[in-house]
Design a protein around this nucleic acid. Sequence first.
DNA 1: GATGGTGGTGGATGATGTCAACGAATGGAG
DNA 2: CTCCATTCGTTGACATCATCCACCACCATC
Lengths: 153, 153
Amino acid sequence: MDIELDRPGLTDDVGFLLSRASGRLVRASNAVLAGHGLRVRPWSVLVLACDAPEGVSQRELADVLGLDPSQIVLLVDELSAAALVERRPSPADRRNKLVLGTAAGQAVRAAAARDVELALAAELADFSAGERQLLQELLTRLVFGGGSPAGRG
Amino acid sequence: MDIELDRPGLTDDVGFLLSRASGRLVRASNAVLAGHGLRVRPWSVLVLACDAPEGVSQRELADVLGLDPSQIVLLVDELSAAALVERRPSPADRRNKLVLGTAAGQAVRAAAARDVELALAAELADFSAGERQLLQELLTRLVFGGGSPAGRG
DNA sequence: GATGGTGGTGGATGATGTCAACGAATGGAG
DNA sequence: CTCCATTCGTTGACATCATCCACCACCATC
């Protein structure tokens, strides 16, 4: 039986729910990505690299992913060792190293993306398409709306 | 100019958004909780312990928080050392150790909860009350699978 | 060619996530 | 009552992640 308290409990806390939901999806995604030799973090770097036709600088990666630049180095190292991405010095600014997805990287990205989407759909099985869309929009505003790190229009 | 891709990008991925949003709120909460000598994790244990009139078993804590039982041990150790909670053997089942919030724990919980709520409100500044409520409900369903623990509606 | 600012790299340290193994206690089967 | 499977708490180990700081390469300015 449920005991209803007159003060806000932990399960009403958006921060807690976010953390819990995130952990759940990360776990599910990791399980699926393991089949491709990836984890969530390297995979997200791979996706960003493959999505940028002209490559992404590591600073941009750190910015979008909300990670410390030193983490990006290791992530790109790992993907580079697997020949999924490659570092290329920027012609405009040689400080920048543009990260680009290789052909193999593109292939892995596509295959992994499908699996991740399936795992995600399984986690969101109780949600209608509209609800999922709504959740996505709310989260997008939460992440990129306020102190937008990537400066999205 | 923005390049619109015909395939789903990372920033459209609910899992990524969840992870990013969670990280953001955890960071903000940790910053606030540092003033009370706490972090998010120990704080959530404290809240659960204080909310349960008859205490919570460590297994229940691990269950609700989605953590490994071995993590709970360290968390309760830490809170116990700070005299915010205490372990009490369950009268019904001596395997169980019920975790209870002390008077000091209740006080810290109340004070910290206010600060956390303020930090949360700041992060959700762009959201209307209805939108925040909506987000909370969606997340609750995602985490607890529709079987709402707090009995909504 | 100094100076200050930026991007990438490396290292250190504490926190997290995950798993395996152990002792204590319970519940059921003989 | 004894044996056995299960559960709870605990400990230890190990990989990943978060955060910070120092360093070098490069760019822009003067």
